[in-house]
């Protein structure tokens, strides 16, 4: 009876397309939370190159805090768990999901609920922040390309909030 396990996602698989922005659910991926006082030790344990400045993005790895990183990899990838070392490697692949926002209105849609100066964020850049009180990990990859990572249980609400903001944007010329 054990068929291939079916993965359920809490937001639509179909992208929401608006004139200035497309909002879509990104493919599932592997994610790990990485913690250590000594970044070099963590690099040794994981084999990853770690950015040292908060907000900095190197490849698929983001520096979130003075001793905290997030790294992503294609689904199914593995990472040593650092057992016995003064590091913490935690699988958080399923904790969050990623929404992508692309298009010239992407920054404005995010600004509907995010108090950061989204338009002036550098890229690549990533940081935790809030969208109307919900914690998100906001990443900017290019002028018109953002991702928002959000804990799974908040995702239906965030999807509705972002698509509503995008729909409103159609009525509100920049």
């Amino acid at each position: 009876m054990a068929d291939t396990p079916v993965r359920s996602m809490p937001v639509p698989a179909e992208p929401a397309v608006f004139s200035g922005v497309t909002i879509a659910l990104a493919a599932p991926c592997a994610r790990w939370s990485l913690r250590a006082r000594d970044a070099a030790l963590l690099e040794k344990v994981t084999g990853l190159k770690l950015p040292r400045k908060i907000g900095e993005v190197v490849g698929e790895t983001v520096c979130l805090g003075p001793d905290e990183w997030l790294t992503r990899a294609p689904a199914g990838a593995t990472l040593p768990d650092g057992a016995g070392e003064k590091v913490a490697v935690v699988d958080i692949a399923e904790r969050a999901l990623t929404l992508t926002l692309s298009g010239p209105a992407a920054a404005r849609v995010i600004a509907a609920g995010c108090p950061r100066d989204v338009e002036r964020l550098p890229f690549p850049y990533a940081s935790r922040t809030v969208f109307e009180g919900v914690e998100v990990l906001l990443q900017r990859d290019a002028e018109d390309a953002f991702t928002i990572e959000v804990w799974r249980s908040f995702a239906p609400w965030l999807w509705t909030a972002l698509t509503q903001a995008a729909a409103d944007m159609e009525h509100l010329p920049a």
Partner: peptide, 9 residues
């Protein structure tokens, strides 16, 4: 180190 895994599982 502490990591919230509420939503992982």
């Amino acid at each position: 180190w502490l990591t919230s895994t509420t939503e992982q599982w």
